[in-house]
């Protein structure tokens, strides 16, 4: 089936779990900024965990669907609706599988967060590049034509082969995503050994997300940190790396980050908190808290266990859905 882009949204890209094995050639990871949310969306529509989804930012896309299918929206709160050929408009809920007849799916502005993920039954069929369907925006390849969607693009997805429902159908239950806190988001990081003073200063000051942030990195705005004099030699960097550029305003690298960097490293944000950063729009207040590697590992395991429980419960719900049609 085809998805025609009527409105692209602010930044909509094809993403999956990202690329591994090419970092020595300068190829970034890319991939959904919240891999758990993308995996959940896939699970809701019966896809494998690594199927390609759409990641949308600030405002979602409007897509014309030429065949019936099942979709799921996960991530920040969003108002979405389906408009059938005869103009009948039906709200589309989040965090659950929604069976749609052909028509137009509109995903509106996002609230309490800035990113969401749309899974479609069968997954998006953009050609895999270097082992992944993710869009590498800086490298200009992967996903759809190596770039964000624009109006008029046509994406292919597997045909669900289902009889078309008259109207959109969705179960009355859904998976609720935790809203971002009104107070500052707490972000844990493991300090690099070499920079104790800087790490302490980082944790003692309030920070806000700078408007120049993107999938490559989150720039933090606040009272500048002191930058030790002298050059440093470039090393590999990773998603989560906290960099200290000469202006003293730290940067947290995200999935699209370059593979090597020449700024000082303050430490790294823990894996369990990276999905939070995917939702941190311009102006969001952050409180950085230093933890050790063991704490990072136990927070990661706790999050994993929580997701496993959720998926287990979800699978029971999904098995009890009425047959399509």
């Amino acid at each position: 089936m085809k998805l025609q882009v009527e409105q692209p949204g602010a930044l909509t890209t094809v993403q999956d779990r990202g690329r591994t094995g090419w970092r020595h050639l300068g190829v970034a990871a890319a991939g959904a900024l919240d891999p758990d949310a993308a995996r959940l969306a896939n699970r809701l529509v019966g896809n494998p965990a690594d199927a390609a989804v759409l990641e949308y930012t600030l405002i979602g896309p409007t897509l014309r669907l030429d065949a019936p299918t099942t979709i799921a929206l996960c991530g920040a709160e969003v108002e979405a609706s389906h408009t059938a050929g005869d103009g009948t408009r039906t709200p589309v809920g989040s965090g659950r599988p929604v069976r749609l007849p052909p028509g137009s799916l509109r995903i509106g502005p996002l609230r309490h967060g800035i990113r969401g993920w749309l899974a479609i039954a069968g997954g998006l069929r953009t050609p895999p590049m270097l082992g992944s369907r993710s869009t590498d925006l800086r490298g200009g390849f992967g996903g759809h034509a190596g770039r964000a969607l624009v109006r008029g693009d046509v994406l292919l997805a597997a045909s669900a082969g289902l009889p078309s429902p008259q109207l959109p159908w969705q179960p009355s239950w859904w998976v609720e995503f935790d809203p971002l806190p009104d107070a500052a988001i707490v972000v844990h990081f493991v300090p690099a050994m070499a920079l104790d003073e800087t790490a302490r200063a980082l944790a003692s000051r309030p920070w806000r997300v700078d408007v120049r942030s993107n999938r490559q990195g989150l720039r933090l705005q606040g009272e500048a940190l002191q930058v030790p004099a002298g050059d440093i030699v470039s090393t590999a960097v990773a998603p989560g790396t906290l960099q200290l550029p000469p202006d003293g305003q730290p940067i947290v690298l995200l999935a699209d980050a370059q593979t090597t960097g020449g700024y000082r490293r303050i430490g790294h944000v823990i894996t369990a908190d990276l999905p939070l950063l995917a939702q941190a729009g311009p102006g969001t207040a952050l409180q950085l808290v230093a933890v050790d590697a063991d704490t990072a590992a136990s927070l990661r395991e706790a999050r994993r266990a929580q997701w496993r429980r959720l998926e287990y419960l979800l699978d029971e719900r999904l098995r009890s859905l009425p047959p399509a049609g």
């Binding site: 300068g26 190829v27 590498d136 490298g139 593979t259 090597t260």
Partner: peptide, 8 residues
């Protein structure tokens, strides 16, 4: 090393 961009 290769960095900055793919293949640089």
């Amino acid at each position: 090393m290769i960095g900055f961009a793919p293949g640089f």
